[in-house]
Design a protein around this nucleic acid. Structure first.
Length: 419
RNA sequence: GGAGAGGUGACCGAGUUGGCUGAAGGUGCACGCCUGCUAAGCGUGUGUGGGUCAAAAGCCCACCCAGGGUUCGAAUCCCUGCCUCUCCGCCA
C-alpha cells in the first residue's frame, strides 16, 4: 500500500506508475474521498473535544452534588450529532482503505518502462546452450520413458495440472527440494520455516494477492481460507501487526511449500508436461530488512537463486523486468530463466523482488530503528527455486542418447541415500 | 463439537461498584553520571495513528484483541467475531 500522504503530494507520479503497470485506479476519486474524510475528521474532533470537556464538568458537578441538567441536555444533542458524523467518517475511511488497496507499488526509476515481457531487458547470461550429437527430447518424453511422471492419473484424481511424480521421479523431486533448502541454509545463512498452506483473507491482503488476484486462488468456503500460491504469503505475514527491533534485522527465511494456483485465464498456454501446473513445489527465500538495505539485498538474493542453477550447471539468463511485467506489489523484479534444450526455450524458474515498504504497510510490519523511531521495514522475496521447470531443464540438459537421465554430480548423493 | 477462564503499551503486569488512567509498577531501550574491568548502582527520558501547520513546537482527536451497542461519559457494562488457556468429546 502506498502512503496516502505520498499520493496527496505526488499524484502524477502515482498516476504514471499505474499506467506503466497496466493497472486501473482512479486517483482523482481517491483524493476526493481523502479530502472529505479529513473534513469529517476535523468536525468529529472538534465536536468530540467539546463533548469531552463538558462531560468532565458533569462529572465534577455530580460529585459536588450540584445540578447538571443543562449540560446533560446539551450533550444529548451533541452526542446525537456526533454519532452521525462518526458513521460518515467510518464509511469514508473504509472507502479510502479499499481504494488504497487497489493502487500498485511504484516501480523504481531504473526499471525499464514497457507494456509486457517484450520490454524486459537481459541483465546477464550464465553459461551457453549445450550441444548434442543427437536430437534432444523434451522432458515429457524423457520422463515417460523412465517412469518419472504419471500425469494422466494425476488428472484423473484431481484434474490437469496436478502431477504425480513416480518412483525415481518422486525421489528426484524430493532431492531437489532438500538440496536447495540445505544450500540456502548452509551457504547463504537462511533460517528454515515450515508454514501453513492455507491462510486467511487478511494474510492474502497483506502481501498484495488480494483483492486483485482472488480468481487465481483456491478458496475454502466454510473457513474463508485460501491455499497459498507461494510461501511468500505466509512467511511475509508472520510479523504482521508487530514492531520488531532493528537488532532483529535482517531476518532471512527459506521455506519449502507446495504452491496452488488456479491459473485462471491462462488455459492452453505452455501447458505441456510440467510447464504450467495448479500445484507445484517451490523453495522460497524471504527477507525483512531495514529500508536502506533493500537494494543491495535484492542483488544478494538474486545471487542466492543463481547459485542453485550454477550448482546444477544449467545455462540461464537474468531478466530485468519492465514496469508492465513487474507484479502489482513489486518495485523491482529480476526473473531467472533456465534453458531447456529439448523444448528449445528459456523457462522462468525464479522471480526475485523488492517490495520496499509496500507489503510492510499492508501487513503493518514495523521496526524500531537505532534512534527509537518506528518505521515500516522492507520486504523482499525470491524463488530459490520452483521445481517443475527446474526439473524440465535438468531432464532435458542431462539426457543421454538412449533417453536415460544422468543426474549432475552434485545431486547424486541426494539421490543415493542408503539406510 | 460441548463447558469454563482470559485477551492492556517492544515485553511482563496493575486497574472492571463507568468520570483528571494514554493508562501504576517492572523489564527492555536511549542519553547522562559513577565506576574501571567483560557486574552493579544513580538520574532523566521513552507508545502508535490521525487532524491543524510550509515545517517544528503547540493544540485537538482516536486507540487497553476486532466490530457493533448502552450512556452526557467505557479499558471498565451488553452483543457478535477472532485468538489463547483448562476440562470433556472426537480424531491423526
Amino acid at each position: 500500500m502506498i502512503d496516502i500522504k505520498f499520493i496527496r503530494n505526488n499524484p502524477d507520479l502515482v498516476r504514471e506508475a499505474i499506467k506503466n503497470k497496466n493497472e486501473k485506479a482512479d486517483i482523482n476519486a481517491l483524493l476526493a474521498i481523502d479530502e472529505s474524510r479529513r473534513k469529517l475528521q476535523y468536525d468529529f474532533d472538534n465536536l468530540k473535544s467539546r463533548q469531552n470537556s463538558v462531560s468532565q464538568t458533569i462529572a465534577r458537578k455530580k460529585k459536588a452534588g450540584e445540578n447538571a441538567d443543562a449540560e446533560l441536555q446539551e450533550m444529548a444533542v451533541v452526542a446525537e450529532e456526533n454519532k452521525r458524523i462518526a458513521a460518515d467518517l467510518t464509511a469514508a475511511n473504509n472507502e479510502l482503505e479499499a481504494l488504497l488497496l487497489t493502487i500498485p507499488n511504484i516501480p523504481q526509476p531504473e526499471v525499464p518502462v514497457g507494456r509486457d515481457e517484450s520490454a524486459n531487458t537481459i541483465e546477464r547470461v550464465w553459461g551457453t546452450q549445450p550441444e548434442y550429437s543427437f536430437e534432444p527430447k523434451d522432458h515429457l518424453a524423457i520422463a515417460n520413458q523412465n517412469g518419472y511422471l504419471d500425469l494422466p492419473r494425476g488428472a484423473k484424481i484431481s484434474g490437469s495440472g496436478f502431477p504425480i511424480y513416480t518412483g525415481q521421479g518422486a525421489r528426484l523431486e524430493r532431492a531437489l527440494i532438500s538440496f536447495m533448502l540445505e544450500y540456502h541454509l548452509q551457504k547463504h545463512g537462511y533460517e528454515e520455516l515450515m508454514v501453513p498452506l492455507a491462510v486467511n483473507r487478511k494474510t492474502m491482503t497483506g502481501t498484495g494477492q488480494l483483492p486483485k488476484l482472488e480468481d487465481d486462488m483456491y478458496h475454502i468456503n466454510e473457513d474463508d481460507l485460501f491455499l497459498i500460491p507461494t510461501a511468500e504469503v505466509p512467511v511475509t505475514n508472520i510479523y504482521a501487526d508487530e514492531v520488531l527491533s532493528y537488532k532483529d534485522l535482517p531476518k532471512c527465511y527459506v521455506s519449502y511449500t507446495p504452491c496452488f494456483r488456479r491459473e485462471a485465464g491462462s488455459y492452453g498456454k505452455d501447458t505441456k508436461g510440467l510447464q504450467r501446473l495448479h500445484q507445484f513445489n517451490k523453495v522460497e527465500m524471504v527477507r525483512f530488512v531495514e529500508p536502506e538495505q533493500s537494494p543491495a539485498t535484492l542483488e544478494e538474493m538474486l545471487r542466492n537463486a543463481e547459485a542453485i542453477l550454477q550448482a546444477f550447471g544449467l545455462h540461464y539468463r537474468v531478466l530485468n523486468l519492465c514496469t508492465g511485467d513487474t507484479s502489482f506489489a513489486s518495485q523491482r523484479t529480476y526473473d531467472l530463466e533456465v534453458w531447456a534444450p529439448g523444448s528449445q526455450k528459456y523457462l522462468e524458474v525464479s522471480s526475485v523482488s523488492n517490495f520496499g515498504e509496500f507489503q510492510a504497510r499492508r501487513a503493518n510490519i514495523r521496526y524500531k530503528d537505532k534512534d527509537g523511531k518506528v518505521r515500516h521495514l522492507h520486504t523482499l522475496n525470491g524463488s530459490g527455486l520452483a521445481t517443475p521447470r527446474l526439473m524440465i531443464a535438468l531432464l532435458e540438459t542431462y539426457q543421454q542418447v538412449d533417453g536415460s537421465f544422468v543426474a549432475p554430480e552434485v545431486l547424486k548423493p541426494w539421490l543415493g541415500i542408503r539406510l
